[in-house]
Amino acid sequence: MYPAPFRYHRAATVEEAIARLVEIGEGARALAGGQTLLVWLKMRFDEPTDLVDIGRLPGLRDIEQEAGRVRIGALATHARIARAPLARQIPIVGDCASGIADNQVRSRGTIGGSLAAGDPSCDWPVLLTTLDAEVHCRGPSGTRTLPADGFVQDLYATRLEHGELVTGVSFALPGKGSAGAYVGFKRCAPAFPTSSVGVQLTLNGDDCTEARIALGSAGLTTIRAKAAEAELRGRTLGAGVIAKAAAAAAAAAEPVADQRGSPAFKRSLIDALVKRGVEVARRRARGETVEVSHEYY
C-alpha cells in the first residue's frame, strides 16, 4: 500500500508551483498537507508522475478580517482554524474545523486541500457553500474568484483548471441575527461523515428572513438544499416549518449506498441533522453558546 514512484518538486513561490504544474502537464499534482492525496497515492487510486509540494509556500496560512470579510489562506490547517479566535467568533466555522477527522489529520490537512480534492465527503466545501464564500484561485492565466457554491462540480472534479491553485477563501462576517451550525454524523472520528449539514439562518426573533443549507456526503458533490431554504425563508420557525425544511433537504439529497449506509438511512440522517442544525442556529442567534460538531458513536 505504498505510492508508485514520482518526481518531487518543492516550490518556493506560488508562481513557481504554477509554472511547474503547467510545464509537466496532466501527470502533476499539487501536494499541500497530503491528508487526502497521500491516502489516494498509497492505495494507488492515483499514480501521478510528479508531485509539486506547495506545503511550504509563504503567506498562505493567515486568517484575517478586513472590511467585514474573513479571509483564510489555503494552507491554513484545520487545527489552526479550530484554534483561531475566528472559531469562537463564528461558531459554525469552529464546528467544522474542530470536527474534521481527528487531531492528527487536522494537524496536517488544509482548507485549500479540502476544496481542491473535490471529494463530496470533505467538509469545507459544504461549510463554505453554507456561508456563501468565495474561493480565490491563481493559475497560468492569472487570478480569479469563484463561488464556493458549485466549486466542486462532480465526484473528485472541481472548477480548477490544470495548474490552477486555490490560494484562499473569503466570506462576509455574518450580520446581526445571523447564526449557523455545522453538524455531521460519522462512525468514528477518523471516518468521513456518513452525512453532514451546514445551516445558516438570519432571524428576527423566530422569523427567518434568510436561510442557506448545504449537504455533505449526500451525493456526488456538495448539495445546496434550495427547496429546504425556501421552506424556512419568510416563515416563523416552529416544529412544522422545520420538519418541512428537513424533509425537503432529505429529498434534495442523492445519497449512494456504501459501507456508511443505505440511501434511506442517509436521508433519515439528513432529516435529523437539518432539524438539529436549525435548532442550534436558532439558539445561537439568541446569544446562547452551544457546542456542536461531528457526532460519532
Binding site: P5, F6, R7, Y8, H9, R10, A11, A12, R20, T49
Partner: peptide, 8 residues
C-alpha cells in the same frame, strides 16, 4: 525549486 528524477 528543488526537484528529483523518478526513483531519484
Amino acid at each position: 525549486m528543488s526537484t528529483t528524477e523518478a526513483g531519484g
